[in-house]
Amino acid sequence: MYKIVRKRVLNPTVTMMDIEAPLVAKKGQAGQFIILRVDKDGERIPLTIAGCDREGGTVKIIYQVVGATTMALNRKEEGEFIEDFVGPLGCPTKTDGVKKVCIVGGGVGCAIALPVAQKFHELGAEVHSIVGFRNKDLVILEDEFRACSDKLTIMTDDGSYGRQGVVTLPLKEALETGERYDEVITIGPVIMMKFVVQTTKPYNVPTTVSMNPIMIDGTGMCGGCRLTVGGKTKFACVDGPDFDGFEVDFDEAMERSTMYADFERHEREESCNLFKKEVQ
């Protein structure tokens, strides 16, 4: 059992938790993920590590309430326990030789992009961050991004905060006006990452994407998280989750992510009604 040491609501659908897991906290690095089960008979879900307190022995996770399992997790309060928590899994984000980097995050993906930005900042690289949200109410981690970015651009779809438009807009402008990044790292919805890659490709800027497919064990055993990268089958859990964006088959990844859409809709509806009752 793993204790929830701290819980903070970041926006109406996104929550942050610090989970007591000393072994994971000791090792976890930016780009890696954990797998958790909220309770017995629960589903195993992967969540990217949003930070580690090595001394305090806690691991930070940030999740968006999207399905039955994240709803169940959200019902847990500080001081309560979750059943299973395993990690750190996957490969850390590579930082070698990068002096100037652009981090592009979208929605809850920003939670995963933040530790990557922080790591580059600590290593002394120049960090430009572009983060996008649907509207002002959904903006998260602004102060944290500001603290580790040499330049921060906030975008909202409706213009209610920062600049209006999609994240690729300022990215394209930067590249057009001659910004030379050693690398662009993008984390967010697959469709957004696909467009980021389309934006950087003409400028041939190395672009890393962080994939988050359906997964069970997270150690390479099931193969459910497979992706086609450069024409080869890769497992996101052991080969990734970071991949060369120019090589990833995004359309296939998007298609595969809808495998259980019906089941999830059903689960969500069931869980959602229960959830509402408890809140009232």
Binding site: C222, D249, R256, M259
Partner: peptide, 24 residues
């Protein structure tokens, strides 16, 4: 460890499992 696939077209379609995933 890692399940093998055949390397034939269509193995990424929805409804294709490794036995490990299906049984797990």
């Amino acid at each position: 460890g890692l399940p093998r696939f055949m390397g034939i077209p269509g193995e990424s379609l929805k409804g294709v499992y490794s036995a490990n995933e299906f049984l797990t």
